Simulated scan of single mutants.
Amino acid sequence: MTDFYPHDTIATPDGSGRLTLEVTDRWNTPLGKPNGGWVLASMLRTAMDHADVGRPVVAAITYFASPEAGTIADLTVTPVKLGRRVQTVDVDLACDGRPLARMTASFARDHHGPTQELGAAPELPDPGTLPDPREVGMPRDGLFGRVEYRMAQAPGWSVGQPSGDPTTDVWQRLDGGTEIDWPALGLLVDACPPPVMELGPLVSMTVQLTVHFHRLPEPGSWVASRFSTRHLADGFHEEDGELWDDQGRLVAQSRQLAILL
């Protein structure tokens, strides 16, 4: 079981009023940059640890530039409105005075209301029957060493034959079954290779990401995930995501705008 989550997402006071976060290469993507989901998870945890808020209901993050592994990032939490039902805060992430990302997130305490699910989880075989991609050539360093994946079949782009259908259905969980908390859901909506790669040899980077948080999965369970792209215009594309627990309940959903490099 990994020792790196949640440790790598915790910002600490440095004694002068600053909140700092070590930017590690343990969550790097194959592009050599820290994963945007890890950035979101770190900023979300910082808000939860250092502001008077409940559990997240929505977070929207805009990425200005990627942090560099080996640097120390500064995080600033600014309450916007700490209401009785909804608490909203901004979190800014910078390095050496250079702004890298801004997140606006809303939280709620002890809120209960009606629930009705009109969607359906992806139909995937039992994850225990599927191969570990790391056993058949998937890199073990960076992000892919921190998150486990199980797929019914290898994506076309990974074998040099893009399918033309930018949709991915996959089981995910933190390595070794580490418990998935609220920040981890923010990580997992952006932890898979982008499905737009099924349209050809394309490289994509997230510009803006919004996540809706519904509930937590049971500790140690796999999360059935579906990611899809339907619109590509002038080098920008959307990506919609849904995360479902192994009981068929939606735990989070997302939409991001990304740019092709």
Rank of each mutant, 00 (worst) to 15 (best):
A101W: 08
A101Y: 06
A101S: 10
R102W: 00
M103F: 04
T104Q: 13
T104A: 10
A105C: 04
A105S: 11
S106D: 03
S106N: 08
S106C: 08
F107I: 05
A108T: 15
A108K: 13
R109E: 10
R109D: 04
D110T: 14
D110L: 06
D110Y: 06
D110K: 14
H111Y: 11
G113E: 07
G113I: 10
P114A: 13
P114W: 06
T115F: 11
T115M: 03
Q116N: 06
Q116M: 12
L118V: 13
G119T: 14
A121H: 07
A121D: 05
P122R: 11
E123D: 15
L124M: 09
P125G: 02
P125L: 04
P125C: 05
P125N: 03
D126G: 07
G128A: 15
G128N: 12
T129S: 13
L130D: 07
L130I: 03
P131A: 01
D132N: 15
D132V: 10
D132P: 01
E135S: 15
E135A: 15
V136D: 04
V136A: 09
M138K: 05
M138F: 12
P139A: 03
D141Y: 08
D141H: 13
D141A: 11
G142P: 07
L143G: 00
L143R: 07
L143H: 02
F144A: 01
G145W: 00
R146T: 10
R146Q: 15
E148R: 07
Y149I: 11
R150E: 02
M151E: 11
M151P: 00
M151Q: 13
Q153T: 13
P155H: 06
W157F: 15
S158H: 02
S158I: 10
S158A: 14
G160A: 04
G160M: 01
G160N: 00
Q161T: 14
Q161S: 09
S163I: 07
S163V: 03
G164C: 06
G164Y: 01
G164E: 01
D165L: 14
P166V: 12
P166A: 15
T168D: 08
T168W: 06
T168Y: 03
T168S: 12
T168R: 14
D169T: 13
V170H: 05
Q172N: 08
Q172D: 00
Q172H: 10
R173S: 02
E179Q: 13
E179P: 11
E179A: 15
E179C: 05
I180F: 04
I180K: 05
I180N: 01
D181I: 12
W182K: 12
W182T: 09
L185W: 12
L185P: 10
G186A: 06
G186F: 02
G186T: 11
L187R: 07
L188Q: 05
L188H: 10
L188R: 08
V189I: 15
V189R: 01
D190H: 10
A191G: 05
A191M: 06
A191Y: 01
C192S: 13
C192L: 15
C192I: 14
P193I: 13
P193D: 03
P194S: 11
P195D: 09
P195F: 04
P195T: 11
V196P: 00
V196S: 02
E198D: 05
E198V: 03
G200P: 01
G200K: 03
